[in-house]
Amino acid sequence: MAIPLRDNMLVVKDLRKSFGGVKAVDGVSFDVPRGTITGLIGPNGAGKSTVVNSLSGFHGVDGGSVMFDGTDITNWPSHKVAQRGLIRTFQLARELRSLTVFENMLLASNDQPGQTSWQALFLRKKIRDSERDLLGKAVDLLKRFNLFHVRDEYAGNLSGGQKKLLDLARALMADPRLMLLDEPMAGVNPTLAGQLQEHIRDLKDEKGITFLLIEHNLRIVESLCNHVVVMAEGTILAEGNMSALRENENVVRAYLGG
């Protein structure tokens, strides 16, 4: 059911979600063009997190639709959304503490044998072989994110910055087509924030991954994103590139504090 639109990875139409009487998201529509880093900004309480949770299947929506790469994924459960290639990260690094860095990485792959109980019992040779290939892939990513030397460490023992990097590296093991990064730079020192930006830009250029980035630091958004969506009070306030948005009176009043 591919609907030929201008080449958009994600098309969100009239998304609605209430919690009790609070309309957290009230008719939100925006696109994420393929191969871009699209920013989603807005003051606290604008509904950004609700959008992220709705897109990634962490809660259902009351109305509207989400098209991901030509497929309607509205109200899909989170694991199906992820299997499709839309991988999200969380605001705080969510390492799996008692799994090693390597195990965190291997876990993320969804096309390995042995993920069901029957396969675990009867496909042991196949599992060994695929595990070896996946380890090779994990090694490449860990080297890229400078985590190779802690590969056999429990993820819970990593430093805060390393956990952030592991979050990103782990998500990449799942071969995402679209990555939804929920404030990846929050609570990160400027040096590491710079590294993370480099990584995101490189991944877009090298692997052609599309990003939807939620970020409060407007300087980062300006340098990374060619397309920015501004939310406020559950609706879309404006869309465009950052320099145009800086001229937009509504945006300035709601968010930029001009």
């Binding site: 990634s56 299947g57 962490f58 459960p77 989170s78 694991h79 199906k80 992820a82 299997q83 991988i87 999200r88 990260t89 969380f90 969510r94 799996l96 503490r97 008692s98 799994l99 195990e103 291997l106 876990l107 993320a108 969804n110 390995q112 044998p113 042995g114 993920q115 069901t116 109980s117 396969q119 675990a120 042991r124 599992i127 595990e131 782990r170 998500a171 799942a174």
Partner: peptide, 21 residues
Amino acid sequence: SPYGRILRAIREDENVAAALG
């Protein structure tokens, strides 16, 4: 096995496991 690894991941953080498919 990968199955057991997924079980341990769910024990640690079921939302992360869900977000990884």
